[in-house]
Design a protein around this nucleic acid. Structure first.
Lengths: 151, 151
DNA sequence: CGCGCTCCTGACCAAGCAGGTCAGGAAAGT
DNA sequence: ACTTTCCTGACCTGCTTGGTCAGGAGCGCG
């Protein structure tokens, strides 16, 4: 139940792309702006490209840009691109697990976990992220003082 | 963003303990009931014991039992016991991360993610699990047909 | 054309975790 | 004393994390 460095980096780089509206941005500039190891970042950008999140051109004046408008790319899209499916249990999707006896309802719990994750990650777009204007439901979640406490 | 086999096993074993109200239950019976490799399960039970979720006694008539009433043990407690803190980013808690520039709001997003996970995992107790009566908010999440679709 | 720029790709690497198994020791009961 | 059951540490195979390194391939410009 943790967020990998890769996913974190990917979202931050994508946010940087969403913010810069002009032309292709080169990897080095993204790496500098968000303080991400360059060569690692290029691998991540490649994955984003293979998943249709980003496009790229080589050569002088080359670089990366978003394949779609910033308000049509969700954080969930990016996380899935680099980490794979969200909230799988033992590498199988929760809707495909079968429990017996006393833990029959556990499947419903994992489904709810996935749904609640989606409710945040699918809602937030790159446009929201760079504007700082998150959707109401997400703001509400983060607004509670409890949410900021460790456990 | 996935659930490990360990966490899944741990919750299922704990559910089994919650269901059996009489005396200590031996590891082998838990393993059989939930189809979990015995020796692996014993390691997990040990971790649960060290985290005060479970108690144990050895010898004939020995076994494991819950350290607290089933309605005072949440799924979150168990997941934390075996997987560590929930929703950490790069192994640091979301409230401690500092982002700059275009991804300043990302911290708020990760906080919201953690909050939404907690809203499910802290709500559901072992008693809920074995009775099949999940809290309303959790049932609602799992009730949507969308929640059962892969993405 | 050729040259430099930038992406693209695969190989490698150290450390750690996942998902276990194996072997033996230590307490509890009878 | 002996069986039962938990307790513990060592070990194992394979994969993931978080990177680095070296070289190739396409693009634009002079």
């Amino acid at each position: 139940m943790r967020v990998s460095a890769k996913a974190d980096y990917a979202v931050r780089a994508a946010a940087e792309l969403a913010a810069a509206e002009e032309g292709p941005i080169k990897g080095e500039r993204l790496a500098d702006a968000q303080d991400i190891p360059l060569q690692f970042l290029e691998h991540i950008l490649l994955e984003l490209k293979h998943n249709g999140i980003v496009r790229a051109r080589r050569g002088a004046k080359g670089g990366y840009w978003l394949a779609k408008p910033a308000d049509e790319v969700s954080v969930a899209d990016i996380v899935r691109a680099v980490e794979g499916p969200i909230a799988h249990v033992q590498s199988t999707p929760p809707e495909a697990i079968e429990y017996s006896g006393n833990s029959e309802s556990l499947q419903e719990v994992w489904i709810a976990v996935r749904a609640s994750l989606r409710a945040v990650l699918e809602q937030v777009t790159l446009a929201d992220l760079v504007s700082g204007e998150l959707p109401e439901s997400v703001k509400d979640l983060a607004a509670s003082p409890d949410a900021w406490l460790a456990r």
